[in-house]
Simulated assay, not measured.
Amino acid sequence: MTLLVLVVDDEADVEVLFRQQFRRDLRARRFVMDFAASAAHALTRIADTGEQTLILIFSDINMPGMTGFDMLPEMRARRPDVPVIMITAYGDDETRRTALDRGAEGLLTKPIDFGQLRQAIEARLGPVA
């Protein structure tokens, strides 16, 4: 079983940054990461994960077209079993409350603390067999 973490962000350098931070895990095939450049692409991607088991979604809030906030209720309706953690440059109380009210499990602020992201992934991976 291949475990999948989906990252939704319109910034092209995000994929490179995530792949660098998690390169050992990806090489060891503990999980795979897929990247969606828009909320619409993410919604399409979660509809067909093939042989992969989607375990976690990280999503930016500010994206052109459908924002992460707009995507959240739809994402939760389609995949209520998969937690969504929002990532934003705005960590104020109102943004946090909106994210949680719309179905996010949590909110992380930029610059990204990859230790926090790793903890979220590890929590979903469960015990190593």
Score class of each variant (00 low, 15 high):
residue 106 G to E: 12
residue 103 G to L: 05
residue 19 R to A: 09
residue 125 L to E: 03
residue 121 I to C: 09
residue 86 M to Q: 07
residue 126 G to R: 02
residue 17 L to N: 13
residue 103 G to N: 09
residue 44 T to I: 06
residue 119 Q to E: 14
residue 78 R to P: 04
residue 29 R to M: 14
residue 84 V to Y: 00
residue 51 E to V: 13
residue 66 M to F: 02
residue 60 D to E: 12
residue 71 M to G: 02
residue 111 P to R: 06
residue 90 Y to A: 13
residue 78 R to H: 05
residue 55 I to F: 06
residue 74 E to M: 15
residue 97 R to M: 08
residue 27 R to D: 04
residue 98 T to W: 11
residue 36 A to M: 01
residue 46 I to Q: 04
residue 87 I to S: 11
residue 59 S to T: 07
residue 21 Q to W: 14
residue 33 M to K: 04
residue 28 A to I: 01
residue 129 A to V: 14
residue 22 F to T: 12
residue 10 D to R: 11
residue 38 S to T: 11
residue 124 R to T: 03
residue 74 E to R: 08
residue 56 L to H: 01
residue 7 V to G: 06
residue 94 E to R: 06
residue 39 A to R: 02
residue 7 V to K: 05
residue 63 M to C: 10
residue 113 D to M: 11
residue 67 T to P: 01
residue 85 I to M: 07
residue 87 I to R: 01
residue 100 L to D: 05
residue 115 G to V: 10
residue 43 L to I: 11
residue 103 G to Q: 03
residue 100 L to E: 04
residue 106 G to A: 10
residue 47 A to G: 13
residue 118 R to C: 10
residue 18 F to L: 05
residue 2 T to H: 02
residue 13 D to I: 12
residue 51 E to D: 11
residue 72 L to M: 05
residue 63 M to P: 02
residue 24 R to P: 04
residue 112 I to D: 02
residue 46 I to R: 05
residue 114 F to P: 00
residue 16 V to I: 15
residue 52 Q to W: 07
residue 51 E to L: 08
residue 82 V to R: 00
residue 33 M to A: 06
residue 10 D to A: 03
